[in-house]
Structure formats: structure tokens, C-alpha cells
Amino acid sequence: MIAGVSTACLYPKPLEEALYDLSVNGVSCVELFINTHSELKKGFAHGVANLLRRFDVKCPSVHPFTCEMEPQMFFSEYERRVNDMLEYYKLYFRFMNIVGADIFVFHGGKPSSVCNTELYCERYSKLYRLGKEFGVTVAVENVSRCKSGSSAFIKEIKNMLGDEFAFVLDTKQAIRSNENPMRFLDIVGSKIAHVHISDSGEMGDCLLIGKGRFDFRKFFDKLAGYNPDCSVILELYRSGWSGISDLVSSYNILTRMTESYCGEQKL
């Protein structure tokens, strides 16, 4: 199990500057949030890879800026869009191969998408299989405004998809969907590939670690039982922290928590 921080926390700072700020402050694992098309170019990707190597930083995952287009491009009645989007997503997978990432975060369709569950699984399977050609795992993230925000929906597609399924749990998005994050873990089991984590409580659902009442001990005990090698990424909105030291402090806390799950040792 490994802890990290998303470059999305520093938005709208450019990706490479966000990566540098986190790296120079001792963060050794990051999720890269691609913000625009030009960041998918090979030259840019190699520059990011060089920065990762310079600071010995790992990158387990990539989040696409096109997530808001996924309902229209993957889950509409206009099938040609699917083929075009599959071709475009090869750019992300190529980027991931260059920087060494293997988890791709996928939001999927919204409740308003003209797409039943069977068609949803068919379209997702196409992207999942394409990712595997590049050594990438495309993992569905629970997002409150999407179909994936429902644990019942995740259970349904997990059962339908079998081996062609992976999951990213976002704890704040679960709370925004009036869902228990632990329930998602129990539903997906070993299919949990990645976590976006934050604290939560009376002050909000996207807080720095230690600022809320989230039961991290219980959560990590359960997560370790399903996937002890899972990556756990701090993902906060810019309004949720004041300075880089806040992110580093939360990262250090997460690191101590995840390091406790080595062998037989527990929190």
C-alpha cells in the first residue's frame, strides 16, 4: 500500500509546476491530472517522466480532463463517437506508458445517459480491453453526479463484467452520494485498484487528514484485506488547504498509516 497526492490539489497551477512543488517537498508518489490536450504530447510526457525520475517519484495513476465528455462520447446512441474516443484515449495510455502509470481513472456515464446497464458494460469493456493492450487498467470511479455514484449500480456492473472490471473509490464522492465508503469496498472486494481519500465530518466532506471524523483505522483495515497493494491518493479541492505544508502534513499522516500495513503489522 502506498500513499500519495494528486496534482489536482494544486489546480490551476500547471501540471509540471504542481508536480515539482509536491516532489521538492518530499511527496514520493503522485497522481497526475491531465488538464488539457497539449499535455498529452510525447515531448511533454517525457518532460514529466524526467521530473519524476529526478525526484524518484512514483506515479501510479492518471486522471483525464475529458471525464466530463465521457457521458456524451461513450454512452450516447451515436456509436461513431465511441470509436473516436477510444482512438483519443490511446493518447492517455501512451502518456501513461511514458511516465510509468498503470491506473486510469474513468468517471463514465451520468444517470441521464441514454444507456442501459448492458450497453454501459459493453462500452466500458471496449475501453478496458484497449487499456490492457497498453498495460493499463481502466478503473471506474464512484462520482456522485454519475451512474457510478450508486453502490447498487457498481454492484450490478461488477457482477456483469467479471474480470473486466476495476474500481477507484473516492471517499468524499461516496459521502456526497449518501453512501458509506465501506460499502463500496465490500461490494468490489479485490477489484479495488485505487483510492482518492480525504477526511470528512461536520466541517465538510473534503478535508485535510485529521480535520474530520473519518474512521481511517477501520477503512485501512478493510482495504488491506481486499488489496494490500492499493495506492491511496490525497485528493482535495484548492479551497480545502492553505499552503503546501498542509498537503505535505496530510501526506505524511497517510504515509504512516499505509506503512503500517506491511506484513502482519497493523495500525
Results as ranks from 00 to 15, higher is better:
Ile197Ala: 02
Phe220Glu: 05
Tyr89Ala: 08
Glu259Met: 06
Thr7Arg: 04
Ser260Leu: 05
Phe219Lys: 01
Pro64His: 09
Asn35Phe: 14
Ser113Ala: 13
Leu40Trp: 03
Leu208Glu: 10
Val136Glu: 06
Leu52Lys: 06
Ser144Phe: 12
Arg80Lys: 15
Ser250Arg: 06
Glu17Arg: 06
Val27Asn: 04
Gly263Ile: 01
Lys42Cys: 11
Glu164Tyr: 05
Phe106Lys: 01
Glu79Phe: 14
Ala8Gln: 05
Lys13Thr: 06
Leu208Asn: 10
Val114Ala: 15
Gly100Gln: 10
Asn142Tyr: 00
Asp56Glu: 13
Lys172Asn: 15
Leu127His: 02
Ile34Ala: 06
Tyr128Met: 05
Ser245Tyr: 14
Lys222Ser: 11
Ser28Arg: 09
Thr255Lys: 10
Arg54Pro: 03
Thr36Trp: 15
Ala174Ser: 05
Asn83Pro: 14
His196Leu: 09
Ser250Thr: 09
Glu259Tyr: 05
Ser177Ile: 04
Gly162Asp: 07
Pro71Glu: 11
Gln173Tyr: 01
Glu39His: 13
Ala152Glu: 11
Gly149Leu: 06
Ile34Pro: 01
Glu77Arg: 13
Ser250Trp: 03
Val62Ser: 05
Tyr92His: 09
Val188Asp: 01
Asp186Phe: 10
Asn159Ala: 15
Ser23Ile: 03
Pro60Leu: 03
Cys121Lys: 02
Leu22Ala: 04
Phe184Ala: 06
Gly225Gln: 07
Ile154Ala: 00
His46Ala: 14
Phe33Tyr: 14
Lys172Val: 15
Val105His: 00
Glu17Phe: 03
Thr117Ile: 12
Ser61Lys: 04
Thr258His: 03
Ala45Tyr: 06
Lys222Trp: 02
Ser150Thr: 04
Phe214Arg: 00
Met203His: 13
Thr137Gln: 02
Asp102Met: 04
Gly47Lys: 11
Phe104Ile: 03
Val82Ala: 07
Ile175Phe: 04
Glu68Asn: 15
Leu127Ser: 04
Asp84Pro: 15
Arg123Asp: 03
Lys58Glu: 13
Leu267Phe: 02
Phe165Val: 02
Arg256Tyr: 08
Gly162Thr: 07
Phe95Thr: 09
Leu247Phe: 07
Ile2Asn: 12
Lys110Gly: 00
Phe220Thr: 06
Glu141Thr: 02
Gly240Thr: 05
Tyr124Ala: 07
Tyr226Ser: 14
Trp241Ile: 05
Glu16Asn: 12
Tyr226Phe: 08
Tyr124His: 10
Phe74Ser: 12
Gly43Met: 14
Glu79Ala: 14
Ile98Trp: 08
Cys146Asp: 08
Lys58Tyr: 10
Cys115Tyr: 04
Val62Trp: 02
Phe165Ala: 02
Val57Ile: 11
